[in-house]
Design a protein around this nucleic acid. Structure first.
Lengths: 201, 201
DNA sequence: TCGTCGCTCATAACACTGTTATAGGAGACG
DNA sequence: CGTCTCCTATAACAGTGTTATGAGCGACGA
């Protein structure tokens, strides 16, 4: 855990702001140093290089997504909880499209690669979805099954829709949210509900 | 439609090879010119710049994905056709991870943005999935509904799983293919099948 | 109090990137 | 043969990440 100096925070804050406002191409050492009121060397003394700084921004992005989803209040209607969790997840991704894109593999373009640290933070955020899924199972809204597997299926579908929406491919229908996102999750939940009985394939 | 000179093809071929073997960071004008046996100017006379060249590579990536999926032979078991289509789609993505990543928004990192051309090619590939979906509906395997919407739901889920697999996040379970991909598609198909009767939400 | 050590930052340089201007060469056509 | 056009090689410019070098400055002990 790195200590929190002023320059460190200024750099991270500037990086997050630039990435959010102007996209990844605006993330350069000179630009970052200028915005933070220092020189390019600060990036190397505090982070060791540009990739490490981006990794911290990515980790922070996961943490923010974590908080955003955790802020969703839970009720006794677990299925409604699940849709509101999905809504919060999608809203956060659409509000921070560049950060979200960098989180999931896009960063591998700049030569950066997803490290174990961010993978861990991402898995922590995933744990929330596992909890919601498990609660839905004990409440009887979803069939008993491996909560991690079921949560992973929901996550895959949600993440896929969000990625297509960010790429502009949701234009395949007129009203993507009403024709793609919610029906997809609804059908998936129905397939995962107690009405069926077979688990595999 | 640009004419096909030798240098053009050599550049495109080198670009596709470098992107596939060493990733996007290997795509530079000097490197490209050296591999194609010419100078950097060829990139500008034939394409107008690096982004336009990448756009053509992306369009070619969609075309290859199109062919790969189109090569799946159709039987009278439409649901089995659908799983084989999904398998071919996933296999192609895993065999060309960098190209696939650049196709869907990752290219926005380098400053490139998805153009209408590639969006069109991508939508053409999507049309195949719409056809399979429509056939499944007339065969009675899927409930009658808007084929584009249903295909979009299947595509979202499949694309999301593939993206998570490429990012390494499928490690949330032990056997992702057997615990995530196929159960997810199976549950989604079940939710889309005739057994249910409500269409919205 | 004086040195010295360690950490941080500014400057400059190196090799690299995309891009552009310029000049040279090869082929087509009158 | 002249000219015109298209393509390309060279060189330059501004930008990138990174590294080496020194200068400053606070903390520590003699």
């Amino acid at each position: 855990m790195p200590e929190e100096t002023d320059v460190r925070r200024a750099l991270l804050q500037a990086a997050a702001r630039l990435l959010g406002e102007e996209g990844p191409s605006a993330l350069s050492t000179r630009r970052l140093a200028r915005e933070a009121g220092t020189s390019t060397m600060a990036v190397y003394t505090h982070f060791g290089g540009m990739p490490a700084l981006v990794r911290e921004v990515v980790a922070d992005g996961f943490a923010r997504l974590f908080e955003r989803v955790a802020a969703v209040e839970t009720t006794d209607d677990v299925l409604d909880d699940l849709t509101r969790v999905a809504g919060a997840y999608r809203a956060h991704a659409l509000e921070n499209p560049h950060v979200y894109a960098v989180m999931f593999g896009s960063a591998s373009l700049g030569g950066y690669r997803l490290h174990d640290d961010e993978l861990g933070v991402g898995l922590a955020a995933f744990g929330q979805l596992v909890d919601v899924t498990r609660r839905a199972m004990v409440a009887g809204a979803l069939r008993e099954d491996d909560p991690a597997a079921v949560a992973g299926q929901l996550w895959s579908a949600l993440h896929g829709y969000v990625m297509l929406e960010l790429s502009g491919f949701n234009a395949v229908v007129d009203d993507p949210e009403r024709q793609l996102l919610w029906p997809m999750l609804g059908h998936l939940v129905r397939g995962l509900s107690v009405e069926g009985h077979s688990s595999d394939r």
